[in-house]
Simulated assay, not measured.
Amino acid sequence: MIHIDRDAPTRDDVHQLLSEHLADMFATSPAESVHALDHSALAAPSITFWTAREDGQLLGCGALKILDSESGSLVPGSARYGEIKSMRTTAAARGRGVATLMLRHILDDARARKLERVYLETGTEDYFAPARRLYARNGFTECPPFADYTLDPNSVFMELRL
């Protein structure tokens, strides 16, 4: 059975998965269009990080960064918006529904926190097509840039009103 729990992005197996994630991002997008966070940035207080595991084996990860406004500034106690970060499934776990489980877990957490909206940024390249389909199947629609993002031909911005 797959379990999703809060975890540390600095844990050895997670660190390795996040390093693979960053390497893939830089291999598929220009450096100025890579917005993925490394393991140390994912440990920030404004970010909740989860992993999906089965019998202790890492299957994937995902995070929710809390924003207090669509502009992205953070004021403790006033969070109304969130951003999905670092959704990644291990190569061995792809095709098993891990990303869908993680996304639903993150959205359930966002609803429990009474967030109004959840945003994300993903790439425009074919490599990111499965991610865009996953988000669209779960109700996300394209939107203008949010927080500190700017228009970028290599980025797709999406939102889900909760």
Rank of each mutant, 00 (worst) to 15 (best):
K65R: 09
Y127A: 07
I47V: 03
H105N: 08
R6L: 13
F49A: 07
I4M: 04
L58E: 01
A147C: 05
D55N: 11
P145R: 10
P144M: 09
C61I: 01
R111L: 07
A44N: 09
A36N: 08
D108A: 15
P130T: 13
D13V: 05
S86I: 05
E121G: 03
W50H: 01
T89F: 00
L115M: 04
M1Y: 10
T150R: 13
H105T: 11
A31K: 08
I84P: 12
R133E: 12
R53W: 03
A131I: 06
F26Y: 15
E54M: 14
A147R: 02
L18D: 08
E125N: 10
L134V: 04
A129M: 14
K114G: 03
F49S: 08
L58A: 06
R11T: 12
T141D: 11
G77C: 00
I2D: 05
D152F: 01
V34Q: 10
A63L: 06
S29I: 09
Y119G: 08
I106S: 09
D13P: 05
V34R: 12
L134P: 07
A8D: 14
D38I: 11
D109R: 10
M1N: 08
L160D: 10
G97E: 08
A92S: 10
R132Q: 04
A27W: 05
D5K: 15
P130L: 09
L120Y: 07
M25P: 03
A41N: 02
I106Q: 05
L162S: 13
F146V: 02
F146N: 02
E70H: 15
E125T: 14
L162M: 04
G123Q: 03
G56A: 06
N138T: 00
T89C: 00
L58R: 00
D5T: 15
R111Q: 04
P45V: 13
T48H: 13
R88W: 00
M102A: 12
V34H: 07
F26E: 12
I2L: 14
D24S: 13
T51M: 05
D13A: 11
V75P: 03
A129N: 14
A91N: 02
G123V: 04
R94T: 09
A110H: 01
A91K: 01
T10H: 12
A136V: 02
T150N: 09
L101F: 04
L115C: 13
K114R: 11
Y149M: 07
A112T: 05
G95Y: 02
D24E: 12
E125W: 06
S19K: 14
S40H: 15
H3I: 15
K65M: 08
R117A: 14
A112Y: 00
L22V: 01
I106D: 11
A8C: 14
T150D: 14
L162H: 10
Y81P: 12
Y127W: 14
P76T: 03
P130E: 10
F157A: 08
